[in-house]
Design a protein around this nucleic acid. Structure first.
Lengths: 188, 188
DNA sequence: CTTGACTGTGAACGCTCGTTCACATATACT
DNA sequence: AGTATATGTGAACGAGCGTTCACAGTCAAG
């Protein structure tokens, strides 16, 4: 019914990264009165598409930043996506826990190929000095940075590649963990 | 110098997903006058941290939604990240081209394992009816949905798994492309 | 046709916005 | 000490905000 208006609203939001004012919505929707906008906004609020904060300003619903989650590949695409939506997610929110400590790195080399991280992939890492046995980490071993599995048995720590052509790395001097890998992102 | 203020500003933005008003910034920064805020905002604008739109409203710089890109793993972490930043990216913008036609699917099975897409990975797909030879697609073959390499030689089209345990799929009745895989996302 | 529910117009209102004064205080330089 | 610069306070201002009137046109139900 009002999907046309909603699309225009989302379009504005994606372009300007903020909600429009009522005056802006007048021209956006083609109204000549702010009251028409006001009534439309009330409908949006009822439907949960938008809400208002304590200042009366419009706040975009999470769906403005999200993309639909459709379940498993085998299930395929529902004929009417809108009716089948199991969920929507915001990729940023989904991946990033600690905003200030998150960084992206490009993977160089195939030493983690058996973990299905290939040359050129992007990894999202979170800065930290500690890791658990089995986590994939970025570490500084004797002055060289590398990405490997972190291994810890008792008080012995070392790094292990996920590629049988490479050998485990036992630190000669030191092994400092710089970050742990939280996600892998590959773009085609 | 003003990084403390900047952090608070970014904190507010991440929480409320909008820029604060000058009055809100007064309590946010601990000022008792809007003029102090006004002068601070002018500095922010000079530094390019924020800008103003045609209504005088504050607009967040792209960096508010972005996370730092640090180059290659081997380069490791610069001691002072702020000075070494080659770039920042917004994961959403980086991955998503057509907002309305993008969906997330969870991968089921290991038929694309040799393309380093494993069971449980998430794939970001874009709806389309056409694909080029070699692209990874979601397709409906004779009534069953699957994710495979799309192959096309001349006017012959079929699907190929990236797993030697599986055989190519030649359609008996039809092969309809539903979407192409644009990115793979794996979260640890 | 009459009635009532919608939907849009146009104008008015109070409120908060961002801006801009004059003035006070602190810090640094001569 | 004296002066300039930076930084904060407090008050005032016009402008645009979101809200809310009264009123006109449209459409479906009775």
């Amino acid at each position: 019914m009002y999907n046309n208006y909603k699309d225009k609203l989302i379009g504005f939001y994606n372009k300007d990264r903020r909600m429009p004012t009522y005056t802006e919505m007048m021209s956006l929707f083609g109204f000549k009165s702010k009251n028409a906008v006001s009534r439309l906004v009330d409908k949006f609020i009822e439907e949960g598409i938008v809400s208002k904060d304590h200042l009366g300003r419009l706040v975009a619903d999470v769906s403005f930043n999200s993309i639909p989650m459709l379940g498993y590949v085998k299930a395929g695409f529902p004929t009417d996506v809108a009716e089948e939506l199991s969920d929507t997610i915001n990729i940023d929110d989904y991946l990033i826990n600690k905003k200030g400590d998150s960084y992206m790195l490009t993977v160089d080399g195939d030493s983690m190929i058996d973990a299905h991280i290939t040359d050129g992939d992007m990894v999202l890492v979170e800065k930290t000095n500690t890791a658990k046995d089995g986590q994939i980490v970025i570490a500084d071993v004797d002055g060289e940075f590398t990405m490997k599995y972190f291994r810890k048995k008792g008080d012995k720590i070392w790094l292990e590649p996920a590629n049988k052509d490479f050998k485990p790395i036992h630190p000669k001097m030191y092994l400092n963990i710089t970050a742990v890998v939280k996600a892998v992102i590959r773009k085609y």
